[in-house]
């Protein structure tokens, strides 16, 4: 008797263990809202506006995911995470997915037991110089004084980059972005280097942004993407294909305006499969067949999200660059919907 109870308990334990890992989608559906891990405030990517509403590039992806699951862009519980506790929060189940400007690296993928399921923004370390310096390429920066935040990977990347190109530089170590910006503005250093998206924000905050240029070279790869827990492939698939649908929609020119029309007319097979008119792909994921149609109607495709939150028409003014579609010179590429 004793033994059988013990065995039952063991079986129950293993079952609940497996169940916990495999049921994120069901758990989210049951809860009625998505716990989306975001940053506490990163210009353009996520921040609260004057009404306390979350806005930004990463926030739009949370909203898109919520539409895919609930057909309701507001069914999101935003979990603001610092860089110190983001992975813990994900592992412990306080966030279902991280859209938190998190760079995909091997150690994070393998050692921290997270699954990165795509790249929603290809970032990279870039260099900004005053326009009056007349520099047009990072390779002309030999001998420059560089403002660099201490203890960051950007510091190491900078050293690697200059050594690889046989150049010398004078580092001016600073404590953080605010300090670096002040020093750079008063001319204590010729170059300020950090991630390209952050650099664009710093540039936008100057009284005269056109007095500064961001050089085209990037010194590092910083692919930022959504991360989920290890061990729940179904949930990873959902997050992955939600993002792929947004990119694929841009490729086929499905926009928030014409999505409903395209679904109705149903004349292009590839578009039909994305919008769920044929193929039943949504149900394979455990979602509704028209999840992408709802998503694109309510949130827009990848290009629309980009343009609305961080694109060139916004004050941040990031160019598409690497984040353009592969058909337009970038590397954003979604596997086919079939």
């Amino acid at each position: 008797m004793k033994r059988s109870i013990f065995a039952c308990a063991a079986v129950a334990l293993t079952m609940t263990g497996g169940a916990l890992a495999a049921q994120t989608l069901d758990a989210v559906k049951e809860r009625g809202e998505l716990n989306c891990g975001i940053t506490e405030g990163t210009l353009g990517f996520s921040a609260r506006d004057a009404n306390g509403v979350h806005q930004g590039f990463d926030v739009e992806f949370c909203r898109a995911l919520a539409v895919a699951i609930f057909n309701d862009a507001d069914a999101v519980n935003y979990v603001e995470l610092s860089s110190a506790n983001r992975f813990t929060a994900l592992t412990a189940g306080n966030a279902d997915v991280l859209y938190r400007t998190t760079t995909w690296t091997l150690t994070r993928d393998v050692d921290l037991k997270t699954n990165f399921v795509g790249v929603n923004y290809y970032d990279g370390q870039a260099f900004m110089v005053p326009a009056e310096l007349g520099v047009s390429s990072a390779l002309e920066l030999d001998g420059a004084t560089v403002c660099i935040e201490v203890g960051t990977t950007t510091e190491l990347n900078l050293a690697d980059y200059f050594r690889a190109n046989g150049m010398e530089y004078q580092p001016l170590p600073v404590g953080g972005t605010t300090e670096a910006k002040a020093l750079f503005e008063e001319g204590a250093c010729d170059v300020y280097t950090t991630d390209g998206s952050a650099l664009a924000g710093v540039k936008a905050s100057f009284p005269d942004p056109s007095a500064y240029v961001i050089l085209p070279e990037v010194a590092s790869k910083e692919p930022l993407g959504p991360a989920v827990r290890h061990g729940d492939e179904q949930w990873a698939d959902v997050v992955r294909w939600v993002q792929n649908a947004l990119i694929e929609a841009e490729e086929y020119d499905i926009t928030s305006e014409n999505a409903a029309q395209l679904a109705e007319s149903g004349s292009i097979p590839a578009v039909n499969r994305i919008l769920g008119v044929e193929g039943g792909l949504g149900e394979m994921l455990g979602l509704e067949n028209d999840f992408a149609l709802n998503m694109i109607t309510k949130v827009g495709n990848y290009g629309e999200i980009f343009a609305r939150t961080i694109g060139e028409s916004t004050p941040i003014g990031l160019p598409r660059g690497l984040n353009a579609l592969y058909t337009e010179g970038g590397i954003q590429y979604a596997p086919p919907f079939r």
Binding site: G41, T42, L43, G44, A47, R48, A50, G201, T314, P315
Partner: peptide, 11 residues
């Protein structure tokens, strides 16, 4: 920090 991450008040 959150307010500074709003593009209206960046800087």
């Amino acid at each position: 920090d959150t307010i500074r991450a709003d593009s209206n008040w960046n800087g």
